[in-house]
Design a protein around this nucleic acid. Structure first.
Lengths: 201, 201, 201, 201
DNA sequence: GATGAATGAGGGTTCATTCAT
DNA sequence: TATGAATGAACCCTCATTCAT
């Protein structure tokens, strides 16, 4: 009789070993052998739980996207005003556990593969659209439509750009500073384009 | 009799084939065989002109960084005021020939390798610092030091973030729109933190 | 409480799944996983009933040889004259249930392995010798010894050759036609070399 | 500058090593490593000259079929009458160099794979049809159409069956005996169904 | 009796590199 | 200067086998 819950445990072990390996050795040097050794398991286990290497990488990226979602959702629930919602989105993206160097590196590595892998592209697109629509929903209540769209694109790009800078380790950019830069961008944008918030019908 | 200028020609052929290959097939699928076939040359030629594959990739990244520099320098020369200098930097980063999808993809691919390759990291750091110091030099003339530093970091991150978005092809973000988003960021930032430009001593 | 007859049932299930798999996917693609999935059982079951994969393959070949024997014996019992015995042997080899494409394919696959596996060779040799001695016993009563031996070898080769042709699917050779070709061979052979049958002492 | 004629040499080396390996170790145990070691070359060479393992196996089977064709053609050219043509076909199939145990084993191994490989099937079909049409062409001149067709099928099956028997090594069947059995089959068949040869118009 | 999770050796393949020409 | 034949290590993947349950 098979052990219950083993599958979830093994999948988590392997995904975490994958993240660690990509961070430390790079995606190009991340092999099934290294991942499985890191997880303390045999190489065959990857096929057992993820079909093949691509399946493991996809599951890893999905896991990162899910972590992000889990960081966003409760913060968004707690927000009452559009301004609070925007702050929540920024905070969620630079929360301590998410913006670890490890996670940033892995995102950057995946981004480099997105164009070659439809599956990774799909995951990326979901994350992208969710963020975009969350930003737009709040911004539309604070500024005219065209301005809101531009601000949403800019803010999304700024957030990703800050992640990239971290991942490249050129700027020692901690979460607090990133958060403040993003909030600053938002504040100046609102001051420039903002209008009294519309009352919802 | 060795033809004069053959070396420059060959190096250029190979670098361009490398860029095309990374763009179309991804860095992971970019092999020496494919690069050299694309260039219409034999596989041995890479060792001849670049020592090995890593050498070719470094030269390619250096070439991209140099293109960027060549886009920045004349624009910067033509600028008279700090505001013009900043506009020049933004324009240089989103000039049509630089922000082609090809170039964006390749930059993104390299970024994914920077942490594993000291040589690529060095090239990246040079580009990074040059942009940073250019931005800072102009911004310091328009706002207090701490604000200037933050704005420089933000603007640099925004520019890279816009490139990433393009490369990921999630947003159909053309050069004009990117340029406007960045200029908008700059304008609001100046309106918020700006002070009358100091006159140079 | 162990169910009675379970072993026979399981063994039969697995042997039939093996035959089906070899027929449809080829011997090289016939894995324990595929066999057991086909049989609706787990992969571990093979070790339980057959020790290992080789054991299952041997049992499968033995089963085919036994089917052939069961096709031959009653027909041979019913035959009264040497001619009838020969006809019975031919008919037994091209009976509808035995000369199915499935069975032919599997025999051909096993033949390709006989030289590497002493166990398969032994099974093959038994079938071979039985057929040979049956043919010879009848032919000796119809023609001189040397002619009988040659005819036995030829007839045995012809029967196997017809099976091979079927298995290769080059000739759409149905059982009836095969039977007639073999009988024709026999008839002409008897007409040429035959002598009045000796009366058994 | 590449050596001339190297390709032909290498291809031949590898094909012969493949035949030797299949004969001695069986098709299932014939790996690229073993083939290339036998040929005194590295494992990568197979991809260089044959794309992949399947390509090498196909080339090997094609080579065997070609050897057979080269054995048939001159004998057929030298034959003047239909009877001589038939004798030539039989002789060509049991010529010393072709009916070596090595070649028989390899044919039998390939036959076991024909159903899984369209490419091998194609090669087999070509050989099959050529033999069939050669036999039929000669037999039609010696007996009525329906009898000729049956005799052609029977004779082709007999030839393959004799090869199989050799390959299985159950009967120590040398080329001479095989040839005589086949000729005997032909002779009795002609005596039974034969008619005075038609004069060609 | 029966399962299927886990292993790890060995397969085919890819590819950067070397080097004789 | 330039070629491409040849190498062999390392990759991903498959699969027979083992064994705790």
């Amino acid at each position: 009789m098979p052990k219950v819950g083993m599958e979830q445990l093994r999948r988590r072990q392997l995904i975490e070993a994958t993240i660690a390996s990509i961070h430390e050795e790079g995606l190009a040097n991340t092999t099934i052998q290294r991942i499985s050794r890191r997880a303390g398991l045999s190489s065959g286990i990857v096929a057992h739980y993820f079909e093949d290497k691509a399946g493991l990488l996809e599951a890893t990226m999905r896991s990162l996207a899910e972590d992000l979602r889990l960081s966003v959702v409760p913060r968004l629930r707690a927000a009452r005003t559009p301004e609070e919602r925007l702050a929540a989105l920024i905070d969620a993206n630079f929360a301590a556990d998410l913006s670890s160097p490890e996670v940033e590196t892995v995102w950057l590595s995946f981004w480099g593969q997105v164009r070659q892998s439809p599956n990774l592209a799909r995951i990326q697109r979901i994350y992208e659209r969710r963020m975009q629509s969350n930003l737009l929903f709040a911004l539309r209540r604070l500024m005219p439509g065209p301005d809101a769209e531009r601000a949403a694109k800019g803010l999304a790009a700024l957030i990703d750009g800050l992640w990239v800078k971290c991942a490249l380790r050129q700027l020692p950019l901690d979460g607090n500073e990133a958060r403040e830069i993003a909030r600053d961008y938002l504040a100046t944008s609102l001051a420039q384009h903002g209008q009294p918030p519309r009352s919802d019908p």
